[in-house]
C-alpha cells in the first residue's frame, strides 16, 4: 500500500496550487452570521469546494460540503458566450475561454459517484455538452474517503461506500501520520508522479463506521406508486423551495437565457447565460401556451424522487442518487428521502 506523510502531502498540495487550479474543501463566510438565530447554517463558517492557494486553507476535518462538487462541473451560473460590437461596428462573438487544468482535492466518494449521472446526461448522449466535457477532461479528482458515514448519510443503501475508489483518480484515506494512497486511473498515475510516496508493507486501511442499511423500493413498487395519495401527504409539508435540488450532486437541470446588458463602461452586449434550474420551481415545466403538466406541488416533489430512482436508472442505466444525505440535512421541513424510500419499499403490491 502506498503512503504519504502529512507533511509531504501538504508540500505536494502547496506545489500543486502553483501549477493548477486547486479546488478543495475550505471553510468560508463569517464566523457568526445571524446571532441568536436557530438556523444551524448561521452558526459559523460553512465548508464548500473552493479554489485555494495553499494547503493551509483546506478544511481537513470536514464532513461534507454544503454544495456538492458538481458546482465545479456545472457552475451555478456560467456565461456561454457574449456578442459584442467590435471597433469597426462588426459583430464579435466571444466564447467563454477554456479553463486551465484543475485538481479537485478532497472530493468525497459519493460526490465523485454523482458525476456518473452528469456524465451520462452531458457526455454520453449526442451531442455532448462541450462546456461540461472540457471541465471534466481538465479535472483530476483526488478523493478523500470518509472515516465514517456522517449523520444523514446513506451511500451504502444506494450502492456506494464511504471509501469507494470507483469514481476518483486517486483515493486518499487518512491513517496515522498521513494518508494511504490508492492510485485508480492513468490520470491519477500521472498526477501522483509529483507525490512523495512511500511503499508501506501491511498498511491496513481503517474500516469506516457505517450507518444502518435499508431496503429501497423495487422497480415494481415505483411503477405502482406513481398515482398514490402518499405523494400528496409528503407534499403537504413541502415548501417547494429549491434547496434539495441545489445541494444535490446529481441534479443537473439548467436554464439558458440571452440577456442584453450594459457593461460598466456603457457598452451594450448580449450574453448567453446558463444557470441552475430546479424541478421544484412552479414554472419549471410550463409549456408555450401556458399549460403546466406539473402544476401541483406534490407532482413536482414526486418528480424529484422518480427522477432519481426511476427515470435516470431506466434512461441512462446509472443510479440517480448517491446517498450523500445533503437534501436530508438541508430540508427545512424534514422531508427525508430515506423515510420516503423506506415507506415505499414497505408497500405491498396488489
Amino acid at each position: 500500500m502506498k503512503f504519504i506523510e502529512t507533511q509531504a502531502l501538504h508540500a505536494w498540495l502547496d506545489k500543486l496550487a502553483q501549477e493548477v487550479t486547486l479546488i478543495a474543501p475550505t471553510a468560508v463566510g463569517p464566523e457568526k452570521k445571524a446571532p441568536g438565530s436557530r438556523n444551524p447554517a448561521a452558526q459559523g463558517q460553512q465548508v464548500f469546494y473552493r479554489a485555494v492557494s495553499d494547503s493551509s486553507q483546506i478544511a481537513w476535518d470536514f464532513t461534507r460540503t454544503v454544495i456538492s462538487a458538481r458546482e465545479h462541473f456545472m457552475p451555478k451560473t456560467e456565461t456561454l458566450f457574449t456578442i459584442e460590437t467590435g471597433p469597426d461596428g462588426e459583430t464579435v462573438l466571444h466564447e467563454t475561454k477554456l479553463e486551465r487544468p484543475r485538481v479537485i482535492f478532497g472530493i468525497r466518494p459519493c460526490d465523485a459517484r454523482g458525476l456518473r449521472v452528469l456524465d451520462a446526461v452531458m457526455l454520453e448522449q449526442e451531442p455532448a455538452d462541450v462546456y461540461y466535457a472540457e471541465r471534466r477532461r481538465n479535472t483530476t479528482l483526488v478523493g478523500l474517503s470518509c472515516p465514517q458515514m456522517w449523520e444523514d448519510c446513506f451511500c451504502t443503501s444506494v450502492g456506494g461506500a464511504p471509501n469507494a475508489s470507483d469514481d476518483v483518480d486517486i483515493l486518499l484515506t487518512q491513517v496515522e501520520g498521513g494518508c494511504a494512497v490508492q492510485i485508480v486511473t492513468a490520470k491519477g498515475e500521472e498526477l501522483a508522479t509529483g507525490m512523495d510516496l512511500q511503499e508501506v508493507e501491511g498498511l491496513e486501511l481503517p474500516q469506516p463506521k457505517l450507518n444502518d442499511q435499508f431496503e429501497t423500493p423495487t422497480e415494481q413498487q415505483w411503477l405502482a406508486s406513481f398515482n398514490d395519495v402518499y405523494w400528496q401527504r409528503v407534499g403537504d409539508r413541502c415548501l417547494s423551495c429549491r434547496i434539495c435540488t441545489y445541494v444535490c450532486p446529481t441534479c443537473r437541470c439548467f436554464d439558458v437565457r440571452d440577456e442584453t446588458v450594459v457593461t460598466p463602461t456603457g457598452e451594450r452586449i448580449v450574453r448567453r447565460v446558463r444557470a441552475w434550474d430546479s424541478c421544484q420551481s412552479v414554472n419549471y415545466r410550463v409549456h408555450a401556451g401556458g399549460h403546466n403538466p406539473r402544476a401541483n406541488l406534490e407532482q413536482r416533489l414526486r418528480n424529484r424522487f422518480y427522477c432519481k430512482f426511476h427515470y435516470v436508472p431506466v434512461d441512462y442505466d446509472v443510479a440517480g442518487c448517491v446517498g450523500c444525505g445533503r437534501c436530508v440535512t438541508a430540508c427545512p421541513v424534514n422531508i427525508d428521502i430515506r423515510e420516503v424510500l423506506q415507506d415505499l419499499a414497505r408497500r405491498e403490491l396488489a
Binding site: E259, V261, P264
Partner: peptide, 9 residues
C-alpha cells in the same frame, strides 16, 4: 454610482 451591483442586470 459605482456598485458591483452595476455589472449589468
Amino acid at each position: 454610482l459605482s456598485l458591483p451591483l452595476r455589472e449589468g442586470l
